[in-house]
């Protein structure tokens, strides 16, 4: 109240005012405005559909074209870089003999076991870590540390522990992904706003009901996303696992092809590995988008 009275003097005499900020400081230099950017360079602006399609096509077509030209010109020896045509032929040949399907299935099966087991362990533990401070204190330091041990370095140990069958390969995928999944699932669970949990209690929910009817549904899209991202790591590990000791599998096939310098075969297998990986990624992405339709 006193402050207000001082600002409005009653008499006619204007009091000595202190200088304004403008009078106190010199004028700031003004920068030339940056001007409107072109569509391609505008930050985070949607592009017209046609330009987008063009860019997507180019990202596939240009490397392919370079490859074609390099192969056709003979600038690089085919022993190092086989022509696309040769790769295609090698791929078709492997598919026809049936070894491609056998190898691909052997690899995919290892992923299903190893990664599936990893997810089955990581999701409950991650949810516990994200929900209970006790679980977080107990598990986070360990998993945070183990995550940084390179899984591939475990291969010799696993061979000693588990022999040379399928188990060391499955175990490698498990070890290489389970800690990442745990931490990422826990993060997704921690995104659940505390207000939502508290309000649920005032609506009569008990602890278990809050977990099952509030925390899990809220975190589910994030959990599926974590599983999708780490799937890429599992896919990388399975090939490493097969390089060491196995009878079949895409990684094993690459190793065999290398022994006979069949680069065309190696390329064909790499293409198959890429295609299977992308397909799985797209499938998980679609799943996530369906589950997370409500996400704003």
């Amino acid at each position: 109240m006193a402050g207000l009275a001082k600002a409005r003097p009653a008499g006619g005499v204007a009091p000595e005012r202190p200088p304004t900020a403008r009078q106190l400081f010199g004028a700031l230099p003004r920068r030339r405005p940056s001007g409107p950017p072109g569509t391609l360079l505008a930050l985070r602006t949607p592009l017209p559909g046609r330009i987008r399609t063009l860019l997507v096509l180019a990202s596939v077509a240009v490397p392919l074209l370079v490859w074609l030209v390099l192969g056709a010109s003979g600038a690089v020896e085919p022993r190092f870089l086989p022509a696309p045509g040769a790769v295609w032929t090698a791929g078709v040949e492997m598919a026809r003999s049936g070894e491609l399907v056998t190898d691909a299935w052997a690899t995919v099966r290892r992923i299903l076991y190893g990664y599936g087991l990893g997810v089955a362990v990581a999701v409950p533990l991650g949810v516990a870590m994200g929900s209970f401070t006790a679980a977080r204190s107990a598990l986070e330091p360990v998993s945070g540390l183990l995550r940084y041990l390179p899984a591939a370095a475990f291969t010799p140990l696993l061979l000693i522990w588990l022999g040379i069958g399928e188990s060391p390969k499955i175990a490698l995928i498990f070890i290489g992904t389970v800690f990442f999944n745990m931490l990422m699932v826990a993060d997704a669970v921690r995104q659940v706003p505390l207000e939502l949990v508290n309000v649920s209690y005032t609506l009569g929910a008990r602890r278990g009901e809050v977990l099952g009817k509030v925390i899990l549904p809220y975190a589910l899209p994030g959990i599926v996303d974590a599983v999708r991202v780490n799937f890429a790591a599992a896919w990388g590990l399975v090939v490493v696992a097969e390089l060491v000791n196995s009878q079949e599998g895409l990684g094993k096939r690459i190793l065999l092809a290398q022994r006979f310098t069949q680069t065309d075969k190696i390329f064909a297998i790499l293409v198959v590995i890429g295609l299977i990986g992308v397909t799985a990624d797209v499938a998980l992405r679609i799943t996530r988008d369906r589950i997370g339709r409500w996400v704003p």
Binding site: P193, E195, L196, N198, V199, S200, Y201, T202, L203, G204, A205, K213, V214, P217, Y218, W294, V295, P296
Partner: peptide
Amino acid sequence: PGPDRGLVLQSGAVYPWRTVERNVAFG
């Protein structure tokens, strides 16, 4: 906490994955 004392917050804190109807039905 309990349903005999209903609470409404500034943010609303509605369940984003539930429809309006199922939000109201939660309790």
